[in-house]
Design a protein around this nucleic acid. Structure first.
Lengths: 197, 197
DNA sequence: ACCTGAACACCGTTCAAGT
DNA sequence: ACCTGAACACCGTTCAAGT
């Protein structure tokens, strides 16, 4: 007989990881407490022990996970801003399944802290209205990733056959290299605009 | 006794209207076929007669409704683009409850047609790479509205007391006038960037 | 043609109970 | 402390039936 599954203790981190996998591979609408329990080899009710507010808490945690990024402030404010935007874009693109949450839920917890951190870094580096700049940068990243993911064809039928991969290589409707170039070009333009305001 | 309710025939339009009202006032997660039926004075199952693919079709229709905008092409391409962006922003802001769908679902039907129309108008007006410009403009609007709605505090607790209003006046975290000015300023910068590329 | 009733499989969440 | 079983109210969707 197979060795009895070693009962790895459940944890917030393991739950979030499994939830991201389901959301990215099957879509947010198929992310279910019961399915999540199955993926974790546990009854759905066990999850409530680690996320007391249940599914709402899970959704919040997913948005937070994909949206709480950090960078070290090297170079001038322009370069710091660039790194923030690149890191944010990468985090969002990695988990298209929860993009809707990330773009829609106001930042809480770690995510709110990351926004404050970003604002302070830019202000310290000498940018006059850092709060407004951060809003503009966040908006830029959000919009760019939204159209990239739309164009990639994620959220389409896809059928229940394909299950394992986190997501197909984003090489459709223009390809990743072109998307990268577009992103950097738009980012440069935005940074130029922020300077002379 | 009260006059027997006049049986206004159900229709796709009435269904979508009622669904938008529920989503905007109570959130997408509370938009339910049964609740939607109640709002329309009809059993939930009647809806399937007008939206054969059920809830998926409803979600598609909501995204389409809030995303399929049209403008008449007056002035140069810059002014046409501006009008597209203003109209898109207005449509998205009017229905924060379905913003997640609008930013996330690839355009279909009327929405896809609107994108094509916009591209053609800009190309006809002499813009070299109109397709790329439309992507950039859509991204700009999406991102701007996403942070505006996040900042407005929509999607917060709000409780089930407040039910009637479509949405509170967007006068929080900076106010609508400041948001309008930010939007126009960013739009000008983007249009300038599109010119010299 | 349009709507309803009953039924089915599946949800989120609670609570007492097990270990 | 951590997980389970059973239960409850609610969900999407089907299908045969009513008018």
């Amino acid at each position: 007989m197979p060795a009895k599954r070693p009962p790895i203790p459940l944890s917030r981190e393991r739950i979030i990881e499994a939830a991201l996998h389901i959301a990215d591979s099957q879509g947010l609408r198929r992310l279910t407490m019961r399915r999540l329990g199955d993926a974790l080899q546990v009854e759905a009710m066990a999850i409530y022990h680690h996320l007391p507010r249940g599914k709402d808490a899970l959704m919040d945690a997913l948005a937070e996970h994909v949206t709480a990024v950090h960078v070290e402030p090297g170079g001038d404010w322009r370069e710091t801003a660039r790194e923030w935007c690149r890191a944010s874009r990468a985090a969002l693109r990695e988990h298209p399944g929860v993009l809707a949450l990330a773009l829609t839920k106001p930042p809480k917890g770690q995510a709110a802290m990351a926004v404050r951190e970003q604002t302070e870094q830019l202000a310290e580096a000498g940018l006059p209205d850092a709060a407004q700049a951060v809003r503009a940068l966040r908006a830029y990243v959000f919009g760019a990733v939204a159209v990239e993911v739309q164009q990639s064809g994620w959220a389409e039928p896809a059928g229940p056959e394909d299950d394992a991969e986190p997501w197909l290589p984003p090489s459709r409707g223009g390809g990743s290299a072109a998307a990268d170039a577009d992103f950097e070009r738009g980012l440069d333009a935005l940074l130029a605009g922020l300077t002379r305001s």
